[in-house]
């Protein structure tokens, strides 16, 4: 049993050193760790200290090596093993965006559904991809317009067809409103004359007409 334990210690320490030397963290564990540089007594002392203690000192008290006798617990808490991969715990609020190319950042997800142009591309090239971009980036576009233009609301000419449509809508709305007014008057009359059957019919009609969205 004692031999077994010792073997495991050695194995793990070597792993740690190999990682330290070969896998790109030269600055994290300083060269003193190299076996050749260590004075004999230090090496002996290090070997005497259980690995768990070294790890605890290096990576923080809360990170303990898994207990080999309690596999169930170890599997239940697999996060503990991450301490072996990373010498420092990840900061809680790490902004992954900082490591990504601009085109892959989260804000680039702002994308025109029709032509696929992203807000990033639009800003960089100064060009929208299609008419739908203006709707997709309405708020951002509005901000830009307020700086490069005289405002964000169009005041000039509109297509005659659009004007025609607007006029027609206006007419329809007026007609609906006057119809509503007429129906309400008749409803009042019906109620006053106690013609409840008519009143119920009128009420249903009013519901339908007022529910029409124009």
């Amino acid at each position: 049993m004692v031999d077994d334990t010792t073997t495991r210690h050695h194995f793990c320490e070597r792993c740690a050193r190999d990682k330290a030397r070969g896998e790109g963290w030269p600055s994290l564990l300083n060269p003193q760790w190299d076996d050749d540089d260590l004075p004999d007594e230090v090496r002996a002392a290090l070997e005497a200290v259980p690995l768990e203690d070294i790890i605890r000192e290096l990576f923080g008290a809360e990170t303990a090596a898994p207990n080999p006798d309690a596999f169930g617990d170890a599997f239940d808490a697999p996060d503990d093993f991450e301490a072996f991969d990373s010498p420092f715990p990840l900061p809680a609020a790490l902004d992954l965006n900082e490591f990504l190319l601009p085109s892959h950042r989260a804000e680039a997800a702002l994308r025109c559904p029709r032509c696929g142009t992203t807000w990033d591309t639009l800003q960089r090239e100064g060009r929208a991809g299609c008419a739908a971009c203006y709707g997709a980036f309405r708020d951002q576009m509005g901000d830009i317009m307020n700086t490069v233009q005289r405002g964000e609301i169009h005041l000039g000419k509109s297509p005659r067809a659009a004007q025609k449509r607007a006029r027609r809508l206006e007419q329809l709305r007026k007609r609906r409103d006057s119809q509503l007014e007429m129906l309400r008057n008749r409803l009042q009359e019906a109620v006053a004359q106690e013609k409840y059957e008519d009143a119920a019919q009128l009420r249903d009609k009013i519901k339908i007409v007022s529910g029409t969205v124009i």
Binding site: A128, M145, E152, A161
Partner: peptide
């Protein structure tokens, strides 16, 4: 072109153009 798809126009930004510096009128 009104009955054939029409021009890109909307109430807020007016006539829509490739470059936002031309939009509106």
């Amino acid at each position: 072109f009104d009955t054939r798809g029409g021009f890109a126009f909307e109430a807020q930004f007016g006539y829509l153009t490739a470059c936002p510096t031309n939009a509106g009128t």
